[in-house]
Design a protein around this nucleic acid. Structure first.
Lengths: 165, 165
DNA sequence: TTGTACTTTCAATATTTATCGAAAATTAAA
DNA sequence: TTTAATTTTCGATAAATATTGAAAGTACAA
């Protein structure tokens, strides 16, 4: 697939954004590419278009599948695997929220709970316990919110926004 | 400042968390340390406690100040600079939201707007324009939400949560 | 089976990011 | 001023992360 100038810019921009969000460039660029491609793409096509290696393509496209942002497709009459992306940004946002909750929030909550369990309540640990309690409380709230978001739709989000603003 | 076992664990945990959130380990550990310290700390004390170099300490403590997560304090009779952290987790969360909005969201919105501006509306770019519009729309909504969050307090957040869940 | 098209793995390499430590710059007391 | 204490900068180095490319693995048609 040969990209025109605007399409290249988009892929590039999305790649940079990914970097800022802790997603690696290749993964984000593959995602961008699949989002603007009308047909599912093969590994070869993706390698060609983005000028990256086979291994890199394979690893990152599978990461996308694991994140629920792309899916493997079979095209009859062809032995290759093809991939396409979820194009609905709300679905994408929810999948990302899900991953981040799992990877960034849950471990902290677990760690804080464990920390509290082993901490003696005395003058020396007072400040520590205050901090841990506050953070845990906050983390649990954010966790709940994300959980809700994961299960909701665009319409819900829009309503919430109206209430807030 | 000599940390007891629990305090060390806390600093360590917060450091790991920071890493997952794209904040470097030292910055997060310094923040944790200042959060559980009852008194403001000097560069020396922080270096000692965390076993890190002067340069590293200086750079990261200044990053904390820049993020609004710590502040410089003068202690009369001492020439050194001392630092202390915001201890209210709500304040901390809001400051982080502010930074992330500025660094991760605003550049995307700008890039998308620019991209749209230079894109010819034709069959070839149809998919691209759809994606860009959707993403822009979503990004603007999130941006609004974060903006609101930045200006609100714990109580507001709690109310919102009640409505949602 | 065997050969072929395709996918996956992984050690080597490159790139990016964080950290150190010593020199330079700044600040404030003498 | 001069001097000493302290902070900041920055090139060198280390650590972490991403990417390559070739070899190994898999699946499927003949």
């Amino acid at each position: 697939m040969k990209l025109n100038e605007q399409q290249q810019k988009f892929v590039h921009t999305w790649g940079t954004l990914g970097t800022n969000w802790g997603i690696n460039k290749t993964m984000a660029q593959l995602h961008a590419l699949l989002m603007i491609s009308e047909k599912p793409m093969s590994t070869e096509q993706m390698m060609d278009t983005l000028q990256i290696s086979r291994g890199n393509t394979n690893m990152n496209v599978r990461a996308l599948v694991e994140w629920g942002l792309a899916s493997k497709e079979m095209i009859s009459g062809d032995r290759k695997d093809f991939y396409s992306a979820k194009k609905d940004i709300w679905v994408v946002a929810r999948q990302i929220a899900k991953q981040r909750r799992k990877r960034e929030l849950e471990p902290v909550i677990a760690a804080l709970v464990e920390l509290k369990g082993g901490t003696e309540v005395n003058r020396e640990n007072e400040e520590l316990l205050n901090r841990v309690n506050d953070i845990e409380d906050f983390a649990l709230k954010v966790d709940k919110m994300l959980e809700k978001f994961e299960k909701s739709d665009e319409n819900w989000f829009y309503k919430v926004l109206l209430k807030l603003v």
